[in-house]
């Protein structure tokens, strides 16, 4: 079965003014859609057809990897945001962050630094690696799944994620991103990984 663009978990204008409806129209409607379309074109009639997305992300290279991982990364990115999100996390996530980084502010600073400091297209991540939380960035379509890590939250720092709303001011976009973080999603990812 062909891959489909997963529905956006909220209306296109729901993240405004932090992320405008116009940005969502391009980012979700054009970029994310194009990765899905490319992935279907690259897999149709090949042994990859019918494989799970994660399986392709883990095994593929080059253009197939790029498109599969970008489908995965963007789906994960949208789920990690929500209107009225943000604020410091509570419960298991708060405990895990305090344990790994000393506190929420220190964690926020590390992920912000990874997002702002990543040169060129890529992603900043909160991951679970070897049972511990960690922050990292990946280039282009890079996905922590490749290294056996469990993604918990991501910030897209491709310029297309923020250029309409923030132009060159990536730090402003990253600062605003914190107001949209869906901590319930992070908690669900963490809980599932710890059970897994």
């Amino acid at each position: 079965m062909a891959f489909i663009l997963p529905p956006l978990p909220y209306p296109r204008e729901a993240l405004a003014p932090t992320i405008s409806a116009e940005t969502v129209d391009f980012h979700y409607g054009k970029h994310h859609q194009a990765y899905v379309t490319n992935l279907n074109n690259l897999t149709a009639g090949t042994p990859w057809e019918g494989k799970a997305l994660e399986e392709i992300v883990l095994a593929a290279k080059d253009a197939l990897f790029n498109n599969a991982a970008q489908v995965w990364n963007h789906t994960f990115y949208w789920k990690g945001l929500k209107p009225g999100g943000g604020g410091p996390p509570t419960g298991v996530v708060a405990d895990a962050i305090a344990g790994a980084f000393g506190g929420f502010d220190a964690f926020k600073e590390q992920l912000t630094k990874a997002a702002v400091g990543h040169f060129g297209s890529g992603w900043a991540w909160l991951v679970l690696a070897g049972g511990k939380l960690a922050v990292e960035s990946t280039a282009n379509a890079g996905c922590p799944l490749q290294e056996g890590k469990t993604p918990l939250l991501t910030c897209d720092v491709w310029e297309h994620a923020y250029y309409i709303d923030y132009r060159n001011a990536r730090p402003k976009y990253v600062e605003a991103f914190w107001g949209l973080v869906n901590w319930d999603f992070v908690a669900a990812n963490l809980t599932a990984a710890k059970k897994g």
């Binding site: 391009f26 054009k30 297209s121 491709w158 310029e159 297309h160 250029y163 309409i164 132009r167 060159n168």
Partner: peptide, 9 residues
């Protein structure tokens, strides 16, 4: 993308 995004997205 910064080279063309404002006009060509």
């Amino acid at each position: 993308e910064h080279a063309y995004y404002l006009k060509y997205q």
